[in-house]
Computed example of a mutant assay.
Amino acid sequence: MTVVEVDQLSMSYKAPVRKGGLRAALTSLVRREYRIVQALDQVSFTIAPGEVVGFIGPNGAGKTTTMKILSGILHPTSGDVRVLNNIPWQRRSGFLTRIAFVRGSQPVGGSQELTVLDSLEYQRLLYDVPRPEYRRTLTELEELLKLGPLLERQLRALSLGERMRIGLAMALIYRPEVLFLDEPTIGLDVTAGTQIREFVADYVRQTGATVLLTSHYMADVASLCPRLILIDQGHVKYDGPLAELSARLSPYKLIRISARGDGNPEEFGEVIESSDGQWVLRVPRDEVAQTTGRLLQALDVVDLSVEEPPLEKVIDRAYREGLR
């Protein structure tokens, strides 16, 4: 069983082309030139119920275009798409009440003069949510998103982090089964970003919702997404476990060690960080177990952990060098 099915999805559009100068500007008034931009090129993937999948790629890779197609905002050039066994761009009401598309760049629409509570009530009416169910859901969202102090405030008076929380509340007040989250923590400080990630994780655990998430912040991906789809220039470059991507692209792991005494960890691997009895060693993957044993025997170890390299470096390498 799948919730999202994407098969050979392609999307192209015409973009106007105009050379610089007055003559080119005048010419474009009577004979406009265009170039074809291929935003997506035969993209295919499926998502099972309850999965949380990171949809990652550089700017212009086709992430938001895909999200808009899946939520029914755009009609693709070709390909077959099903979300909850519906064709998204037909935008049937029964389908729209089962999905939510939340953009971090514009989390809350509508009149900015309304209070948060009025906006949520409007969502209730728009999606025909029974009042008893609305009250139960609102009580849960108040607790999860800490909405209490915000309910009587106008939308225009909210900070960016508060607007993101309200945007999620408005999207979830009708309990959608599928969430498309486009940069949900963009522009947020560390605390607000952490709150959003914790909320998404809690919501998925409690409801079993399916989530497709895009983000340039690897903390979002690392903490929420066991599976990663990497897209670049309109093509899927990788689709699989996040841990496997690290193993394919990074030939080493990091050993973080804290030790007492005069031992020298440099004898056991490449030291990339060193400070006050704490070191970080870069060690080939196939030598981690052996090196860890040697460290424990040779040093007075206080603490030791083995870590994957930072996800940012792994993804950056995937962009620059591709996947082999």
Rank of each mutant, 00 (worst) to 15 (best):
T2K: 13
V3S: 10
V6R: 05
K19N: 12
P49S: 12
P49T: 07
G57L: 10
T65K: 00
T65V: 01
T65S: 15
T66P: 00
I69C: 08
T77C: 09
S78A: 14
V81H: 08
N86T: 11
W89A: 04
W89D: 07
Q90I: 11
S93E: 14
I99F: 07
I99R: 06
A100N: 10
V108D: 03
G109P: 09
G110P: 04
Q112W: 14
L114P: 00
V116F: 00
V116K: 01
S119N: 05
P130W: 11
Y134E: 00
E143N: 09
L144E: 06
G148P: 00
L150C: 02
A157W: 01
L160F: 02
M164D: 05
I166Y: 09
M170L: 15
Y174F: 14
E177G: 11
L179N: 04
E183T: 08
G193R: 14
R197V: 09
L213R: 07
L213D: 04
L228C: 10
I231M: 08
A243E: 15
A247S: 14
K253D: 13
K253N: 12
L254G: 04
I257G: 08
D262C: 06
V271H: 01
Q278W: 06
Q278L: 08
W279P: 01
T292W: 07
L295M: 13
S305K: 12
V306W: 05
E308W: 13
